[in-house]
Simulated scan of single mutants.
Amino acid sequence: MKNLAGLMKQASQMQAKMEEVQNSLNALTVEGAAGAGLVSVTLTGKGDMRAIRIDPKLADPNEVEMLQDLIMAAFADARAKVETANAEEMRKVTGGLDLPAGLKFPF
């Protein structure tokens, strides 16, 4: 019974740490860029888009397709950075243990 109480205490501490990490990730903003910085996208730590910046040089009607591609690339860049930040924070909470494949941060 003593081991169960200790396990429950550890689980409670882990949950508190997870909530703390989740709050810090909610405050995180990450910028991804494409086209040598002509397009940038800012995401939150949860992956929600907060801002997009497009260099005025790209406002040419003949370049709409390229602009669309750059926006997608900038978003993908920012999203990858968010996933890396999430994984790093999770490793801190789990003491370096890798989570099983498919198990991700709770959002």
Rank of each mutant, 00 (worst) to 15 (best):
F105N: 07
A59Q: 10
D98H: 07
G96N: 12
F105T: 13
A73D: 03
I71E: 00
M14S: 09
A51E: 02
G32K: 02
V21K: 06
N86I: 07
A11T: 07
R79A: 06
A59M: 05
E19S: 15
N3Q: 14
P56Y: 08
K57I: 06
L99V: 09
A34N: 08
P56N: 15
F107V: 13
A101E: 15
M49F: 04
M90T: 13
F107G: 13
A51W: 00
L7H: 09
G47A: 14
D98C: 07
A16E: 09
Q15P: 05
V93T: 10
K17L: 08
G35S: 10
D69H: 01
V93W: 00
D77H: 03
L58Q: 04
A11R: 15
A33F: 01
K46A: 15
Q15K: 14
Q10A: 04
D48K: 02
I52L: 06
V93Q: 08
E31I: 03
L97N: 13
M14T: 08
L38D: 05
R53S: 12
V39C: 02
K104G: 14
A78H: 04
L28G: 07
L43T: 01
N62P: 02
A73T: 03
I54M: 03
L4Y: 01
K9N: 12
S40P: 02
L28P: 06
M14F: 07
T44M: 06
M8W: 10
L43Y: 04
N23T: 07
P61M: 08
E65P: 00
L70D: 00
L70P: 00
M72W: 00
M8T: 11
R91D: 15
A101W: 05
A27V: 06
F75E: 01
L25A: 06
A80N: 12
A76G: 06
R91L: 13
K57C: 12
D48N: 12
